[in-house]
Write a protein that binds this DNA or RNA. Structure first.
Length: 1039
RNA sequence: GGGCUGUUAGCUCAGUUUGGUUAGAGCGUCUGGUUUACACCCAGAAGGCCGCUGGUUCGAGUCCGGCACAGCCCACCA
């Protein structure tokens, strides 16, 4: 950093200046800049935040990425958006903290490590034992945490790295125990036998949210259960239909609807209702259903009615194979319009049957072992896995004549999100948190507006989910996670416990409902086996659901339950930025846990961003393997390009679709990314037949191959933009020789200066507002358009003439540097590296910036003040004036292009326009020369159209370009004819409009505007007609 | 079954909140170009029943109803 020099004292030494210029490559070197600036930022500690009573805090906690694997582009989007906000807030002068961290992701991480263990060593977790397995997972975690952090740093994320947290570290563990202890103390934790989603592969319960449903081809088997002592007129069998015949071993009843007749009628009248009032499609469907129903009415209903009566009389049926008598019961769960109208009840293996079992006080016969094999209740099928049981049972049923029919049917199979294997409903002891009160606070927080969710359409889903208030199953039969702080104590007199824990407030006890013992809950790390005199206490082996610790993230990372200064200062945090699929799993739980633990909301606002989709429109995910490593993108395009592309694509209601391909590092051919090759470790280039590595490369041989970068159009566009910015900056720096900062008075400013400053002021305002409303794309667009189309294409071009004029050089230098400075700062949150790179170089060229109100020099752009521009600069008149110039310029350029005038050939032109417009254009006339190699000979109302020219009209001007003998008359005539035809079309429609009721009904100013517009179109048409005429005259003359 | 989102140029998407001249951008295509930063560039051009349909209105890409197609989420399915 050069020493700061006062105004007027800075005269760069020539050689130094040359040196600096030589140091500016014509292509932005993103790798060098990233390396340099990352180091600089880290050394200076700009991103570290501490409690500062003199500033307002702005805090964000990162959604902690799972340590299951490396980050992909979905994370890159999430983190780019957060960093954009955080960097802006830091520049705005907030004491800004972004807490980084990673999540242990219990079930997911353990599943991955177990899978590898099995694949690579053929071992299960039981072969290894708890301690050894957990050690393996820690190793995995260390490896991926390091990789994740390096990815975040490579992206330029301005996290406070000194405040790094891991959901399983001591600070988080303390918070987890405190939360559990408080819940236990308040009686909100209970243990009970419940039907849970059992992952037989991982041998753990999983929550509903971790289960997804897959449609597959299956069958519908019809089974006959013999009726015990059938009376005359009664059926000998009841027929039930099932998709899961093997569960019949656990049947405890067969149910029929209590009043099938009434239910039938109810369904029919519902369908009739639909036919009357529903849509076309509904009608058709309802009619079909009615038809089916009327068939069933004659075929099935009488049997059902009889069965219902039999059930009322306490009759029974025989369960085949088991030869067990089970009751025929009535229950509304049996729908007369589905299946055979009779349903088997298997409470231990079906959620609905479980409900029936509870209602009807039925026994529950559990057939499953934890590992998915059948147990002793399955009789001769004991020890067999489910699939084999099914096959064997079907064979036996068929042999014994109980299998009457098989139909093909598509069925939905519940599948574990983690292990990708089937979920079995399974009766198991499980820990739950009572949710009604907790859910209510989380609902109130959002309905009252205390916590804002944006976009607002996500509020409904959040509220709907919470309003179910389903108790939260928090136990997982895993080894990787926070072990539940519960110990089982045999039945002793309570006085024994009182003695054992006298004076300790960190131990609670409660009667265990399952047996006659006690449940002990401890706030501290551990209880010894012999903590209670005369008996051995045993710790519950289960661990807590990952979301139990994630729910605490905003306050646990700040030190809760301790009353830390950080918690006091930064909490509630300001914003949470996340993706929609964890609104209920995570956001809702953070809100309820936040209020419960701290009495305060966890954050003011939640912003839900779009999802990243691949070229097939599928969401990117680790499990699909279509997640692209941001590093593979940044290698080629740079971190700024990655970030800019993602921010640019973040609109309010559309997901981000990215079509990506590989680039062969050997021959630069684009290798299409397909579903097949996207998970390969190495790919052979179809063009040059050489192999290259992908992000999945693992073995040393694979890694030795060069990495094939991931390419995509959006990244290219963004990379080009960064390069454009770099080169505009380069232009400014190259032209800084002799620069002296000065305060420029309004009178010294030319039209173009006032125009660019007006535009800059609008853009600055818009960017700030957009980012504060999470309208990321809008901000990026505004900056892209301004930088490229206004600053580069016009202001920089125009400045060239003045830069070569010593008289006018000073002012234009000051405006150039002032605009560039503000532009850099506005762009910095999105593209931090290139802006910092330029900013620091600029400090070498010009230690003190011009335009004081625009800039204050500082060491790093990361802590430079956010631009607040004077809205008084916004000048619609100047913008309108400049627009006239732009339009005229475009017409002249078009005329030249159309007539193939060589670029160096100077042409002259005349513009017929009002005196006012002429006055506006006059000061701009020199720029026609530099920007279109054309000279204005005449401007004003008195211009007489030349006999032969290439010309154009706008609403305010007629432009005649003298292209002399270069003119292609037929082409020009054709163009005119087309133009006139177009104008006539507009005129016609306007005339029609103005002769209708529009004139009376529309507001006067709108009518006036239309009249003026019609007038203008007519005069344009007339001018074109004249032009056409003279062209035709010229054509005739040539003949 | 309930909910959400999308359908605009060959492709990827803005614009719809608050209705008002001739609907925009990037990529791709075509024409021309190395002029005091940038070929990752410059200048220019072509390319649109704004999914369909009905309504409200003087006026609809924009507001309202219906339909179609695509995608996502939740619930359920003997």
């Amino acid at each position: 950093m050069a020493e700061k020099v006062g105004i007027g004292e800075f005269f760069p030494v020539m050689s130094n200046q040359e040196q600096l210029i030589n140091d500016l490559p014509s292509q932005y070197d993103h790798l060098a800049a990233q390396e340099r600036q990352t180091k600089f930022w880290e050394e200076k500690g700009f991103f570290h935040s501490d409690v500062n009573p003199n500033k307002r805090p702005y805090a964000v906690v990162i959604p902690p990425p799972n340590v299951t694997g490396a980050l992909h582009l979905a994370h890159a989007l999430n983190d780019s958006l957060q960093d954009t906000l955080v960097r802006m807030k830091r520049m705005q002068g907030f004491e800004t903290l972004w807490v980084p961290g990673v999540d242990h992701a219990g079930i997911a991480t353990q599943a991955i490590v177990e899978k590898r263990l099995l694949e690579q060593e053929g071992k299960t977790r039981w072969d290894l034992g708890r301690e050894a397995l957990v050690q393996r997972i820690w190793d995995w975690k260390d490896q991926y945490q390091a990789r994740i952090l390096s990815q975040l740093k490579a992206m330029g994320c301005s996290c406070d790295w000194r405040r790094m947290r891991f959901t399983l570290d001591d600070v988080c563990a303390k918070a987890v125990r405190a939360f559990f202890f408080k819940l236990f103390d308040d009686g909100l934790i209970y243990r009970g036998k419940r039907l849970v989603n059992w992952d037989v592969n991982l041998q753990t319960a999983v929550s509903d949210d971790e289960v997804f449903h897959e449609t597959t081809a299956g069958h519908f088997w019809y089974l006959n259960y013999p009726v015990v002592d059938p009376q005359p007129g009664e059926p000998e069998f009841v027929t039930i239909a099932t998709t899961r015949p093997e569960t019949m071993l656990g049947d405890v009843a067969v149910a029929v609807h209590p009043d099938p007749e009434a239910e039938f009628s109810r369904i029919e009248s519902e369908l009739r209702e639909k036919i009357v009032s529903g849509s076309e499609r509904d009608k058709e469907e309802a009619e079909k259903e009615l038809e089916v129903l009327s068939l069933r009415r004659t075929e099935i209903l009488p049997t059902l009615v009889r069965l219902a009566a039999m059930a009322g009389a306490g009759r029974k049926v025989i369960l085949p194979i088991q030869n067990r008598e089970i009751p025929l019961i009535t229950d509304i769960w049996a729908k007369p319009d589905k299946g055979t109208g009779v349903v088997k009840i298997t409470p231990a293996h079906d959620p609905n049957d479980y409900e029936v079992g509870l209602r009807q006080n039925l026994p529950m016969v559990n057939l499953l072992n934890r590992d998915g094999t059948y147990n002793e209740n399955a009789g001769k099928y004991e020890g067999l896995p489910i699939k084999k049981v099914r096959a064997a049972i079907l064979e036996d049923l068929e042999a014994q004549g109980f299998l009457v029919k098989v139909e093909d049917r598509t069925i939905e199979i519940a599948t574990s999100d983690r292990s990708k294997t089937a979920i079995e409903p399974y009766l198991n002891d499980q820990w739950f948190v009572k949710m009604d009160g907790l859910s209510q606070t989380a609902m109130d927080a959002v309905t009252s507006g205390e916590v804002e969710i944006k976009p607002t359409r996500y509020i409904k889903g959040y509220l709907d989910w919470l309003s179910e208030k389903r108790d939260w199953p928090i136990g997982r039969q895993l080894w990787w996670g926070h072990q539940i702080p519960i110990w089982y104590c045999p039945d002793v007199d309570e006085s024994v416990l009182k003695t054992a824990f006298a004076g300790r407030e960190d131990v609670l006890w409660r009667r265990n409902e399952a047996d006659d013992g006690w449940l002990l809950c401890s706030l501290s790390e551990n209880l010894k086996e012999d903590a209670v005199a005369g008996c051995t206490i045993e710790r519950d082996e289960d661990v807590l659901d990952t979301w139990f610790s994630s729910a605490l993230w905003p306050h646990s990372t700040l030190g809760w339950p301790d009353k830390t200064p950080e918690l006091e200062y930064y909490y509630p945090t300001s914003a949470l930025i996340t993706s929609r699929d964890i609104i209920s799993l995570w956001v809702a739980r953070m809100v309820l846990a936040g209020y419960y633990n701290t009495g305060k909301k966890p954050f003011d606002q939640v912003y839900i961003h779009p999802k990243i989709l691949d070229k097939y429109g599928e969401g990117m995910s680790k499990s699909k393997g279509n997640g692209v490593d941001p590093v593979a993108v940044m290698e080629k395009f740079g971190a700024d390009a990655l970030r800019f592309a993602l921010v640019y694509l973040t609109t309010e209601n559309q997901d981000v679709r990215l079509a990506l391909d590989f680039e062969c590092p050997h021959c630069s051919a684009v290798v299409e990314q397909t579903k097949k090759n996207r998970t390969q470790h190495i790919i052979e280039c179809p063009k040059c037949k050489q192999s290259f590595a992908t992000q999945w490369a693992e073995t040393p041989e694979e890694r030795a191959l060069p990495l094939g970068p991931v390419v995509g159009e959006r990244f290219e566009v963004a990379r080009n933009f960064c390069n454009k910015l770099w080169n505009a900056s380069r232009f400014v720096m190259i032209n800084l020789e002799g620069f002296q900062p000065c305060t420029i008075t309004f009178d010294e400013l030319c039209v173009e200066d006032r125009w660019i400053l007006s535009r800059l002021a609008s853009v600055a305002k818009r960017v700030t507002e957009s980012l504060e409303q999470y309208k990321f794309s809008e901000a990026a667009r505004a900056l892209y358009d301004f930088a490229w189309d206004e600053f580069c294409s016009f202001y920089v071009e125009i400045s060239k003439a003045r830069l070569s004029d010593p008289e006018r050089r000073g002012v234009v230098q000051n405006v150039l540097i002032g605009v560039l400075d503000t532009l850099l700062r506005l762009l910095h949150p999105i593209t931090p590296f290139v802006t910092e790179e330029v900013w620091r170089r600029l400090a070498d060229f010009a230690p003190v910036r011009g335009l004081e109100e625009l800039a204050q020099a500082s060491e790093s752009i990361t802590v430079a003040p956010w631009p607040i521009v004077d809205e008084a600069w916004i000048d619609p008149n100047i913008e309108a004036q400049f627009a006239q110039f732009q339009e005229a310029l475009r017409c002249v350029r078009d005329a030249r292009a159309r007539q193939n005038v060589p670029p160096r050939t100077e042409v002259s032109f005349a513009i017929k326009c009002s005196a006012e417009v002429a006055e506006l254009l006059l000061p701009m006339s020199e720029f026609f020369k530099s920007m279109a190699c054309s000279v204005a000979t005449e401007l004003g109302p008195g211009v007489v159209p030349p006999a032969l020219s290439s010309n154009a009209t706008t609403s305010a001007m007629e432009i005649y370009v003298d292209v002399a003998d270069l003119i292609d008359i037929p082409a020009e005539i054709q163009k005119k004819e087309k133009e006139i035809e177009k104008l006539n079309g507009f005129i016609k429609s306007k005339e029609a409009k103005l002769s209708g009721s529009f004139v009376e009904k529309a507001p006067a100013q709108v009518v006036e505007k239309e009249r003026a517009s019609l007038e203008d179109l007519r005069s344009q048409r007339d001018a074109n007609l004249q032009m056409l005429q003279s062209l035709q005259t010229a054509a005739d003359a040539k003949k």
